[in-house]
């Protein structure tokens, strides 16, 4: 058994933090992605431009820079707003942009842009005849979306979604830089104090690979489910 010098429990806690950050960012990014995709496909010139601006700018800036900006700048920005609310309307609220919030917000924001592209491509890949048929049977807008467009879109979106998730998972390592005690930060501290970087870094690397492998399996199953009636999963 490898000697973790008593860092075992803290590493386990760190792993939990990593998974929490990853899952919450994923949820946020999927919501943002769906919104972005609809904005980009909308007939409104303004929404279309807004969506394009968001995806272009986000994809042009390093994740770390965005995270530092949100973490260090976010609190300042929020303080300006809350101060204004207090002096103007006597509303006293306190919003704390801590490492966790900043991390999830940044990663969600970044991957929202990528998810937007994935979903847009997937929606466009659904044959128009399918939607027409649903309308012809009297389905309303929401029903068409829920019963036909969404399930068919998912089949096309899943490969991209799975890919984004794998990249997102690795991006969570950056939260260690702004001070959140995820498993990378704990491993880094442990490496320095025990002078055994190989033990800890390789272990954490293995945990990332394990999470990736489990999710790969999960996505393969989902793909199978959404490919019902389309022959082989592509």
């Amino acid at each position: 058994m490898i000697d973790l010098h008593g860092y075992g429990p803290r590493l386990a806690e760190g792993a939990l933090v990593t998974v929490e950050v990853a899952v919450l960012s994923l949820v946020l990014s999927v919501i943002l992605g769906l919104l972005t995709a609809s904005a980009k496909m909308s007939r409104s010139w303004f929404l279309h431009r807004l969506g394009t601006l968001y995806t272009t700018v986000i994809r042009g800036i390093p994740d770390l820079v965005l995270m530092l900006l949100l973490f260090f700048g976010g609190q300042m920005g929020v303080n300006v707003i809350t101060d204004w609310l207090y002096y103007q309307f006597d509303i006293d609220i306190f919003i704390n942009i801590n490492e966790f919030v900043a991390g999830v917000l940044t990663i969600g924001l970044i991957f929202g842009a990528y998810m937007g592209e994935t979903f847009r491509g997937a929606f466009l890949a659904v044959e128009y005849g399918q939607i027409e048929a649903a309308r012809a049977y009297g389905m309303n807008h929401w029903l068409v979306f829920k019963r036909v467009r969404f399930p068919q879109m998912m089949r096309h979106a899943l490969p991209g979604l799975s890919n984004n998730w794998m990249v997102l998972l690795k991006t969570t390592a950056l939260v260690s830089v702004i001070g959140l005690s995820d498993m990378v930060r704990i491993a880094s501290e442990a490496s320095k104090s025990t002078r055994e970087p190989f033990t800890f870094m390789l272990l954490v690397g293995a945990v990332y690979l394990a999470i990736a492998s489990v999710s790969e399996w999960g996505f393969a199953r989902l793909q199978k489910r959404y490919s019902v009636g389309f022959g082989e999963a592509d």
């Binding site: 690795k170 390592a173 870094m201 990332y208």
Partner: peptide, 22 residues
């Protein structure tokens, strides 16, 4: 390629940086 693509670059950086120092 599996290991280097499946783990964060930050870990690879730490591993080599600390690995060298220690």
């Amino acid at each position: 390629t599996y290991v280097f693509r499946g783990t964060p670059l930050l870990i690879q950086l730490y591993l080599i940086y600390y690995g060298v120092v220690f």
